[in-house]
Write a protein that binds this DNA or RNA. Structure first.
Lengths: 129, 129
DNA sequence: CCTTGACCTTCCAGTGACTGGAAGCCCAAT
DNA sequence: ATTGGGCTTCCAGTCACTGGAAGGTCAAGG
């Protein structure tokens, strides 16, 4: 099938599929006589794997490692779990950072009238923290 | 004072200060006879404002808008609050997205032995979601 | 006076993960 | 034969920096 069809089935833009091929995340697709990329159902499966891993926030590098493990029948599930654990830790750090930011912003906004007058604790806090 | 001293006082790398000047976020600094950038205490204050806004996750564009409002004695605090509210909303969306990701990952990890055996629900889920 | 080392200057390139767009080929249907 | 859509490559842009090269400046010590 053509790249457009593969893109539709996997939920990944065609442009992104070419990009993934370019950076070596996925193997180069076969080509038709006229030079079009040609995808099999198995290729689409790989693309869906990538799509799901990316949608869970794994970096492209992590996805590459996960793909390797997926294709390796002798993998240790511990290796997979380690990658996931590292990612969860990063996600949790990010959540905490964002929650702290949110708390600060909400407290500042509470103290700001938000009307036509110019006095504004948000700006004051940004200037003299 | 030199850019290095200003950088130290404001908590922004010198490189980043030059970058901010280049994109027009902050006005071009004065220059000494020999071409070095020259910063006043007021310039450092501006840099600190930018630093704090950035550390709260405001985009560079938002920081530009906030700087404008800061310098405008006739501003309406409502305009400041609107920018902050938009940012808080984005932060909250991101937090929710990350929490959903975290929940999925944690549940997958729970079901994965994480030992030397190859069977791994994490990979299975990524492949057949 | 000269050297050393820390500082400053500009400019170009790379990061991550795409995304947009231009120029041009291919294919199926009218 | 011509349209319209899809495909190809390649270059550029996004965001917010960051690294590095090549070279000018400054203050202190010998």
């Amino acid at each position: 099938m053509n790249i457009g069809e593969a893109a539709r089935r996997a939920g990944v833009p065609a442009k992104t599929i070419r990009y993934y091929e370019g950076i070596g995340l996925i193997p180069a697709a076969g080509r038709t006589a006229s030079g079009y990329r040609d995808y099999s159902d198995r290729d689409v499966e790989t693309l869906r794997f990538v799509q799901h891993a990316r949608s869970l926030g794994f970096s492209v590098k992590d996805v590459g490692d996960l793909l390797q493990l997926w294709h390796d029948r002798d993998r240790a599930s511990g290796d997979v779990k380690r990658i996931a654990a590292g990612h969860v830790a990063a996600v949790e750090r990010k959540i905490e950072e964002l929650q702290a930011i949110r708390a600060t912003l909400v407290s500042l906004m509470h103290r700001c009238h938000g009307d036509d007058r110019p006095d504004c604790p948000i700006l004051e806090e940004l200037a003299n923290p």
